[in-house]
Amino acid sequence: MPTYFERRQIVTPGDLIAEGDYVAGENTYKENNKIYASRIGLVEYENKKVNVVALRAFYIPRVGDTVIGTVVEIGFNGWMVDISAPYQAILRASNVLSRPFRPQKDDLSQVLDVGDLVVAKIVSYDRTRNPQLSVGEPGLGKVTRGQIMKITPTKIPRVIGRKGSMISMIKQETGCHILLGLNGVILITGKSLEDERLAMMAIRKIEEESHTRGLTDRITQMIREEKGKKGGEK
């Protein structure tokens, strides 16, 4: 039962990773008792299970995930929301209004218009039907200010860092409030545009260098240097 790649080695689609009594995990598939990679990524072994941590992937909805989306269509009794996934999500009017929806009286575009951003939770999804969203919890709903950026969704855990170390460091250093949508969309709200830009710069750097060593230290250093520059100019 040989394996052909070491842990955390990079593989591309079609690479034969292992042969024999293994189980195909994430981003791999099994054919004729052989495990192949189906995405570019890094090999991980978990007992008998072979995973590839994808370097490139898109967001697939999961129930319970908090996502950030854009309203793209106003329907008869709700909205269609682009959540950067293969499927658009449905947000029902009754969920947003938290009372029965009255088609004759309620003008949905007054509540959420095309182009509006919403933070929402996925409440149902099964691939045969489009995912459904809910905003019925504190912290969810229409976004009124801040900056939006998009990163590869597989990099979100890296932005969070071990036990949230990375994200709390960025929040602390920049003074920004940062909301990570698991679909790779990030909302940053700070006291000034300068602070928001700094946080975005840090996150972009994490995305680009997500799998290198000593990243947290380097990001901290970068933010401090940038802050120093700005201070010097004043």
């Binding site: 591309t12 689609p13 079609g14 981003n27 192949y36 189906s38 995405r39 570019i40 490139r56 992937a57």
Partner: peptide, 11 residues
């Protein structure tokens, strides 16, 4: 296709 993260059997 691989760059778009599309799951593939092979290149």
């Amino acid at each position: 296709l691989a760059d778009a993260g599309i799951p593939m059997k092979d290149l």
